[in-house]
Design a protein around this nucleic acid. Structure first.
Lengths: 209, 209
DNA sequence: TCCTTACGCTACGACCCGTAGCGTAACTGT
DNA sequence: ACAGTTACGCTACGGGTCGTAGCGTAAGGA
């Protein structure tokens, strides 16, 4: 879904082509694979999608916004499979996130749009809404399940619970991204297992404090 | 030092101006602050540095390589102060790294060049040599000190020791970068303390495995 | 002094940007 | 059926950046 709170879908005139929307996003992802972020151009995406360049500019302000929407849908497939234990759940989501970062579209696009967002608050908000929150949801859901299983205590203080979740989220997402894109080494089962052991042990200690 | 193993410094002819080198890198950092990564141009850097645009291209292949070198020197100031305990050392290096990421030059440049490096192996090697290894050095030094203090056991297996160090490095650097640039929330003393508690407890558990 | 390399400067073709203008297509209300 | 409204495709354009070539000059070394 790319509805970002469109205030006015006008009730008259020719409606926008939903097929064109999907064709453009698909063409954008293909262009990311072939050309990468830096060499991707609006004209190329338009040509691949079979639409006019002006059509792109009627829907997106520029390259940044278009790529965020094109990549965001890939994060929809992130699910938290209930594997029976917190350890297995964490390991599963780590491997799932790593698999997403293995795709050439996300590799080249994710860091680039985050870099752009350091000077563009609206872009950062768009990334947060359509990408980051989708990941953070998994952390919150995973904690909830662990609490139901009795693996984690139910924190009474709501504010501290939220900041702990933020901490966990930054550690998980940050470590996987750094391992994949900076260290450029694979996130395999062995790494995921070692990381999960470290994280859960740390979680227990942090809760005791 | 920006010597990247220059194979042949020619022994004849007019030597390159070292003053121009420094002026260009300084101009590049200033341009990053004012314009950000995406709007930074080679022409603008040349004008600020008071040199001709062709002089830039004689030394750097393009914007990516220039910015890496311009930002790399900022990572020279990273030090591991001996604060007496592993906990204090980790906390100190986290805050130091966060302070570096608070600078507008690094905020806008670091993620951008990493994004570019996903499609450019030579660029990734340059980043590794001049930036990543400078950070990783702190992790190795910190572990060495902790082992001398008896806070960490000396691992007999060299391979597993290396991969553990890699894991720690990705967790620390990844979490700080993600917190700062993706979550866009400050790495203050409280966050650093909570993160350190989590990391060290996890480290102990990982060593026991 | 000659040779070699670096530098500043200008100019250039190529590419991409983002927009304006226009004719046409699609859908809506009367 | 018809007029009103919006989307679309297409062309063209000024503006900007890229990366390079060419030339004359400056700064060292044999």
């Amino acid at each position: 879904m790319l509805s970002h709170g469109h205030p006015k879908p006008p009730r008259t005139g020719r409606p926008r082509s939903a097929a064109a929307d999907e064709a453009i996003l698909e063409a954008c992802r293909a262009s990311l694979v072939d050309l990468g972020w830096s060499k991707l151009t609006m004209g190329d995406v338009a040509t691949r999608a079979g639409v006019a360049k002006t059509t792109l500019y009627r829907r997106w302000a520029g390259k940044n916004e278009l790529v965020v929407d094109a990549v965001a849908v890939l994060f929809d497939e992130l699910e938290l499979p209930d594997l029976g234990s917190l350890s297995a759940d964490v390991q599963g989501v780590v491997l799932q996130f790593a698999a997403l970062l293995d795709r050439p579209e996300t590799r080249t696009a994710l860091m680039a749009v985050v870099a752009e967002s350091t000077r563009d608050d609206a872009l950062r908000a768009r990334i947060r809404d359509s990408i980051v929150d989708r990941q953070k949801r998994l952390v919150l859901l995973g904690r909830q399940r662990a609490q139901q299983r009795g693996e984690l205590p139910v924190e009474p203080d709501e504010a501290s619970a939220a900041s702990t979740a933020d901490l966990i989220f930054d550690v998980i997402a940050g470590a996987v991204v750094h391992r994949t894109l900076v260290s450029a080494e694979p996130v395999d089962e062995d790494w995921a297992r070692r990381f999960t052991v470290l994280l859960l042990a740390g979680l227990g200690a942090a809760a005791a404090t």
